[in-house]
Amino acid sequence: MPLLRFIAGRLVKGVIVLIAIATMNFFLIRAAPGDPASVLAGEAGAADEEFLRQLREQFGLDQPIMTQLWIYLTDIITLDLGFSYRQGRPVLELIMERLPATLLLTGAAFIFSLTLGIIFGILAARRVGKWSDTAITTGALFFYATPLFWIALMSQIIFALWLGWLPNTGFRTIGAGYTGLRHALDVGMHLILPATTLGLFFTALYTRMMRASMLEIAGSDFVKTARAKGVPEGRIVRRHIARNAILPVVTLAGLQAGQIVGGAVLTETVFGWPGIGRLMFEALAQRDYQVLLGVFFVSSAMVVLFNLITDVVYRVADPRIEVGR
C-alpha cells in the first residue's frame, strides 16, 4: 500500500520536525532575560543568592544546558510536558482540560467557514456579474479586510447587548447547573458568536477562492465535453465544475485546520472562552514557561498532524496527486 507507506514516512518526518520545534522552543524560552528561578524568587519577594541556588538545584537549572535539553526532550517523548508550579498541576493535565473547549470552538468555526464559503463561492460564480454576485463578493471583501477583534466586539455589542439574543461571554451559563440536552443547547448558544467571529475571515477567503476557481474551471474543455454529452446543467455544476474547483479550497482548508489549536487566542480572550488560547495568554502573562512550552508543543504537533491529514484528503480529492513523489 503506497498510501500506508506514505503515511508512515510522513509520521517519521513529523516526529523529526517536532523534535526540532521542541528544541527551538526550548532555546527561545531560555533566550528571555532571567531564568524561571529568578522570576519565582522575585515574586516570592526573597531573592537572596542562597534561595536562588536552592531553586535552581530543585528545578535542575544548575545543570549544563545540553543536559537540560536532553531531559526536556526525553520527557516530551514520554508525553510528560512538565509541571506548572504556578497552578500546582501537571501541564498535560491543564492542556487536556482546556483542549475540548478549543477544539469545539475551532472545529465549529472550521465547519462553518468551509460550508458557507463553498456555498457562497458556488452561488457567486453561477450568478457572476449579477447583483447577488456583487453582494457576496463585497461581503467577502468586507470580512476579509476587517480585523477579527473588531468583529468580535461589534458582534458582542449588537447580538448580546442590544438585541440580547445571545450570551455575551463564557462557555456556559454560570450557576444554571444545566445537564444533558439543556447543557448542550446552552453551550451551543455560547458557541455561536465566537465561532462565527473566528470563522468569518476564512469564510471570506473560501468564498473568494471558490468563486475564482469555479469561474476558471467553467471554461475548461471537459466542461464543454460534458455539455456535448447532454449532461443537465445542475449536474455539470456539481460533478464537473464544483468537484474540480474545490481542490484549491482543500489546500487552504488544510492551512486553517493547522490553526485548530493555537489560532484562537484573540477570540478566546474576547469571548472569555476557557480554551488553550487563553491558557497560553495567561501563561505568558505569568511567565509560566512550562505551560507555554507545552502549549507550543501541542499546537505544533497538531499542525503537523493536520498537514498530513490534508495531504491524504487531497490525494482522495485529486487522483492525479501521487502522494510521496
Binding site: 474543455d221 464543454k224 456535448a228 454529452k229 447532454g230 460533478r239 487522483p319
Partner: peptide, 24 residues
C-alpha cells in the same frame, strides 16, 4: 438542445489532454 446533444449529435475535441474530467 440538451436532449439532442449526446443522443443525436456527438462531439470530440482537439485537446484530448484536457477534454476529460481529471477527477472522474
Amino acid at each position: 438542445m440538451r436532449k439532442l446533444r449526446g443522443r443525436d449529435v456527438g462531439m470530440i475535441f482537439q485537446e484530448q489532454m484536457t477534454s476529460l474530467n481529471p477527477v472522474m
